[in-house]
Design a protein around this nucleic acid. Structure first.
Lengths: 120, 120
DNA sequence: TCCATATTTCGAAAATCATCGAATCGATTG
DNA sequence: CAATCGATTCGATGATTTTCGAAATATGGA
């Protein structure tokens, strides 16, 4: 994946997180762990109408930082940890290109685990 | 700074970066180092009209991730490294709250340098 | 003072985003 | 099959963002 493609994705991912409700939802999903949460529960916790929340969840999913899976009538949403790490990697590498003495050890740290695929 | 205030700021910072031109500008400023770049040069490099770029730079500055300083007729813009680290900190701590085994060592890594103030 | 330069602010048009009720879809149950 | 439940899609409205030329501001020099 070349730099430009990566940046285009980063813009979309950042945009998905750049919203009060959506950032709250993402944080909640991270805390919820691999189990994730059911759409209705997410909407209720955030006190947002289901249709509005569905819209926000779609944005997060399109940006590739959350995933959904249907289980009978319920739909589970969960944070995509590897994607989040890719985003952090992009931002940090970016940062360190110019100022390696500032956060140089972060790059190694982000390679901490080999779970590039969904580590559920 | 409590969590809610931090999140409100994070939303603004993420929103500032969630734009093709602005993310490019920020990356360019990071690479440019503490010297930063002059407004006109930024606009020219990105092939964007000065007034449009001025608007984007204002958004980045309001979000607190770039700083400006006037030097006679020129205005220097530079990336605010500590602010960027704070944003990364927020995102990573967020992430690790739920999944410490994924990127637990990142928190220590981000504390790598004590330059909480402007390290120009 | 008058002019040139660097940049910002203003203002208006176009585009995108956010919200949420109503209608629809998918799955389960009687 | 009809009813119900959980969730999404549609559609319309209002709000915000993006864009950029024209005008304004600030600085330095002749």
């Amino acid at each position: 994946m070349d730099d430009l493609t990566m940046q285009v994705w980063a813009v979309e991912a950042l945009g998905a997180l750049a919203h009060e409700t959506r950032l709250s939802v993402f944080r909640m999903l991270v805390k919820a762990g691999p189990e994730g949460m059911i759409a209705g529960a997410i909407a209720e916790h955030q006190a947002v109408p289901p249709s509005t929340m569905s819209h926000h969840l779609a944005i997060l999913e399109r940006a590739g930082i959350v995933q959904s899976e249907r289980e009978s009538r319920l739909i589970h949403y969960r944070a995509d940890y590897p994607a989040m790490r890719r985003l952090l990697m992009f931002l940090i590498q970016d940062c360190c290109q110019g100022v390696p003495e500032m956060c140089g050890d972060l790059i190694a740290a982000l390679h901490c685990s080999p779970s590039q695929s969904q580590g559920a």
